[in-house]
Design a protein around this nucleic acid. Sequence first.
DNA 1: ATAACAAACTAACAAGTGTTAGTTGAAAGA
DNA 2: TCTTTCAACTAACACTTGTTAGTTTGTTAT
Lengths: 190, 190
Amino acid sequence: MKPLDRKTEIINCAAKLFKEKGYSAVTMRDIAQALDIKAASLYNHIKSKQEILVLIVIEIAEEFTKTINEIVLSKTTTIQKLEKVIQLHIDITIRNPEALACLNNDWMHLTDKELTYFIKMREDYEENFRNIIKSGIASNEIKNINPEVIIFSMLSTLRTLYLWYGKKKGFTESSLKNNMSEVLLNGIIM
Amino acid sequence: MKPLDRKTEIINCAAKLFKEKGYSAVTMRDIAQALDIKAASLYNHIKSKQEILVLIVIEIAEEFTKTINEIVLSKTTTIQKLEKVIQLHIDITIRNPEALACLNNDWMHLTDKELTYFIKMREDYEENFRNIIKSGIASNEIKNINPEVIIFSMLSTLRTLYLWYGKKKGFTESSLKNNMSEVLLNGIIM
DNA sequence: ATAACAAACTAACAAGTGTTAGTTGAAAGA
DNA sequence: TCTTTCAACTAACACTTGTTAGTTTGTTAT
């Protein structure tokens, strides 16, 4: 593995700590100590504690936004779109669970234009999801249940996958995806 | 409404702030200001910031623990047990969404014996849930899917209901319960 | 009227916060 | 070899944190 530059190391390390204790409870001295340097040295690489949070959260949020846009535009069935959305969440969870924890728990500590930008992306994401569900109901692929309940139920599961992944052994990425799709789409009752 | 005693007012007020910004980001001065008094005055009613967190989190955790124990012991079908669990989460969400947010996001800021106690309750809760699912699979009421996936999927939705309840209008408690049961148990596909 | 109490206050503290300034030693490029 | 750059350092800052001590004030019980 190529040695990451120091800024990336700091961000990854911070993300791990943020996941464990939350943004506010982690001090610059905590981050420094985990890297075995002094807090002041961090400022050779990053502008502020805020910047670390922004770099962690915004990048992931943009990836979600970009990908769901592509999914909406793809010419496939509703079910296939939903499976792609499940795949998207699993992908990112496996690749970067710490950043995902951050995005879920610490986004409210963003400020100013980044906060606005984040909220906008989040709303757009949910709106795209809502449109997938609605057109699935219209085409009789999905039951005529209140779309908000469906969106909430699926998203709350997918968004918190990071809490669970890693603790449970014996899942390959594809077996996880298959199990998850089955449960979320077809339910659990015989 | 009977006037709550001051300690309860403080705890409710703190819970609301903790929900918005998280335990660590809320200062005693924030709580005091929201009650229009000075921070030092809080200490006439509570011992410490920690005590506030403990009082919020432990009470709710005990209610979950107690109720799921009763559900496990009840002589009903697996499906009815699961519906009771859904009902439990909806009940508490409606009654005290702030405390639930706290329990979900700030439990890791408990310390010493309360932290241990909380983690034990959480594990017990999941173990009870797991047993309901397993016996449902054994009796052919529930599909033979990996129980961990089912537990995770249902619990992640139920645990984060507080995020959603209040934002969405037009749900009575019972219509919410019916919709939720349908989606979680039978899925969304036609 | 007096005593007792509840619940607010002011003032202060020690420890911890993010951050800046200026310095140093080692590595890399000319 | 000389010089620039990088990434660490020490020292300090202004401010915020949870908390304590001691005091005041209004209400209630004797």
